[in-house]
Design a protein around this nucleic acid. Structure first.
Lengths: 373, 373
DNA sequence: CCCATCAGGTAAACTGTTTTACTGAACGTC
DNA sequence: GACGTTCAGTAAAACAGTTTACCTGATGGG
């Protein structure tokens, strides 16, 4: 019998055709079987060579590698994934906001994730948690349908309870710069509480007592950390938190602007504003400029995150540096560790520090502003 | 021997175990074969039902779908990709800059791409063209190893000649907001030439004759479009292009700032600055503020791209609106069309328009600034 | 001298789908 | 009534790797 079951003949025929053309990496479809026959070894051997299995002799290894190079063979990752159970892809899951990716906050995190993932040989896939996406459990599908090995969650809040599905389904998920309370998911987060305290200490040193805060959604854990630190210090320094001294800026420039306006309307004696991120701080800056208030002469403004443009707005923004890029890197590294078998949960906190620029100064005296030190 | 070859028994045992527990979507590993046997049809039939093959009767279809729902079956995408030749993944390839993703320019494009891709049932994978990545031809590997069906290229210039590999290898690639001259790659691009002309016309109307430009790398096609439009209008309006009136701001705030400083040093009589993107414009704004120049009183500044924060810097930035998000969407739509068989090349140009804000005004008279209209 | 072990390699099973070639029944037509 | 056609569905061959169980010849120890 020349050809026992099947498929041997067509394969051989094809192979011959390719041999004739002989160019490396040219014809499509160079498979492991061609390599095996050309190198006169079995496909198992080729596979083992490619995966650096120590079982194989140096000489065989060489022989195979030469053919691999000659034919420009690249293993088909789909087939590899099918048998190996690993896709080497991780997803970055984020909420649907207006043009999410254009937000430097997410951008920094994702940059860190991507750079580290590339270094570790993983691909990164982007995914938005739209309402219907969640409703149809497509976030679980990512795992069930074998798209990915793990997921990084960014920008979520307590109300995104579907995150629980990951832990429940035994899927690897990592919260990046966030903590999911009582869900026991891995996390890597910047120390926002400390950041906020540093801000309050600094403002206090400058003599500020009438401080307002523009915050984002309080169902975001990190924001709560900042709000609590702010509130605690305010109570301690001035005996109480006045109504309307904390206004919601919803994380955006627009609403930050509106929030600053409301704050200054209700409390014209405010001498300093602490914004929960740089975008809201920029909104506040805009509001101050519009009202002819000088920054920091009349009012000091502090942001948080130290995104790229913070140093270039007018005046340059004093802000909390949260190492977002590093957080992304670390989170990615840890997630890959877990994919590769790490058992201990991950709970990392990265230090933050205040970056002093031109938007803060000592408190104004009797309506007359003094320059910052 | 109780177990003939292998793995048959454990599989069956598992299956039975699952049947006992009977919960939907709970145990892992529900395959098309289980569905088939439970529904008492062949796996081919199940496959056809799932792919809406009209060959199947409504009654069979129902029967199968019921079982599918019951067991919470989700087809394994890896296996699907292996036989179907499509992965339903597209890559976004971009250069390695510092924290690329944190740039709102890229962010807007990618947001558009992602949103459209999700709507069309495709996943998006992120990839950076680092030097070694290109050297090892890994951009070609993306196709050869079956990671992706097509690639979107953003942020590249003429010197990125490796893009040629896509066309040469018969791989589907799309330039987004860019044109690769003499490479015949598909593209979707915003009309930067027109944008620049609108800027020049407007500045001219305001009486400006001494106009400087802060540009980015001229080996980026879109930037060249702007530079040419600028140069053409300058020659026409004032009889020549003075040396040093065009300075390189390398697309960033930092270098835009430095470029503005150089420009104003060399030509203190400059009354208007046209920056090739908003980041460089912000740098220029910063430089002006630092020198005590009033914008637009002493110098008008125009940006390009109309990224989110442009409306909130001080003063709010007049800029060219380039519909980046829409460009991303359209590019993605067209790329998917090509994946699905479209033959005609894609060459789309999206209109741009000027957005007037506070950073521009009529030319200053004899060193005395007049307010904008 | 004989059996156990081991190094190096192989054939075949396995991953979970899609697709192709085929089959049996019903139906219409001449 | 024999013969094409559809129709609806099936068995098995792809897809391109990894992994497992086995094989063989050489070595080594008692």
């Amino acid at each position: 019998m020349p050809t026992p079951p099947s498929a041997k003949t067509p394969a051989k025929a094809k192979e011959t055709g390719r041999e004739a053309s002989s160019g490396p990496a040219k014809g499509k479809r160079v498979g492991i079987r061609e390599i095996a026959s050309k190198a006169e070894v079995s496909v198992a051997t080729v596979s083992m060579v490619l995966n650096n299995n120590p079982k194989i002799t140096a000489s065989t290894r060489q022989k195979v590698n030469r053919v691999v190079k000659e034919l420009g063979y690249r293993p088909n990752r789909i087939a590899q994934s099918l048998s190996s159970k690993y896709t080497n892809i991780i997803a970055v899951l984020m909420p649907t906001l207006r043009h999410t990716m254009a937000d430097p906050y997410f951008g920094e995190l994702i940059s860190g994730i991507c750079d580290k993932a590339a270094r570790l040989g993983h691909k990164v896939m982007l995914e938005h948690a739209k309402p219907d996406f969640v409703r149809e459990k497509r976030h679980v599908d990512l795992f069930d349908r074998r798209y990915i090995d793990g997921v990084m969650c960014i920008g979520f809040s307590d109300k995104h309870t579907f995150l629980r599905d990951f832990a429940d389904g035994g899927h690897l998920a990592m919260m990046v710069n966030n903590v999911a309370t009582d869900m026991d998911l891995d996390y890597v987060v910047c120390d926002y509480a400390s950041g906020a305290e540093q801000v309050m200490t600094y403002l206090s040193q400058l003599g500020h007592r009438k401080i307002g805060m523009i915050h984002g959604a309080p169902d975001v854990w990190t924001m709560r950390q900042m709000m609590e630190a702010f509130r605690a210090r305010l109570v301690q320094d001035s005996g109480g938190v006045a109504d309307g001294v904390m206004v919601d800026g919803r994380f955006t420039e627009e609403h930050g602007y509106a929030a600053a306006c409301r704050l200054l309307d209700k409390h014209p004696d405010t001498t300093a504003i602490f914004a929960g991120n740089d975008k809201m701080a920029l909104g506040a800056l805009h509001c101050a400029a519009e009202r002819g208030l000088r920054v920091p002469g009349d009012v000091s403004i502090v942001g948080s995150d130290n995104i790229q443009y913070a140093a270039f707005v007018n005046p340059a923004l004093t802000t909390v540096n949260t190492p977002l890029y590093d957080a992304g890197m670390l989170a990615c590294e840890r997630l890959v560790e877990r994919i590769r078998g790490r058992k201990e949960p991950v709970a990392e906190v990265l230090p933050t520090h205040l970056v002093l620029r031109q938007s803060t100064g000592i408190v104004r005296q009797n309506g007359v502003a003094e320059p910052a030190e």
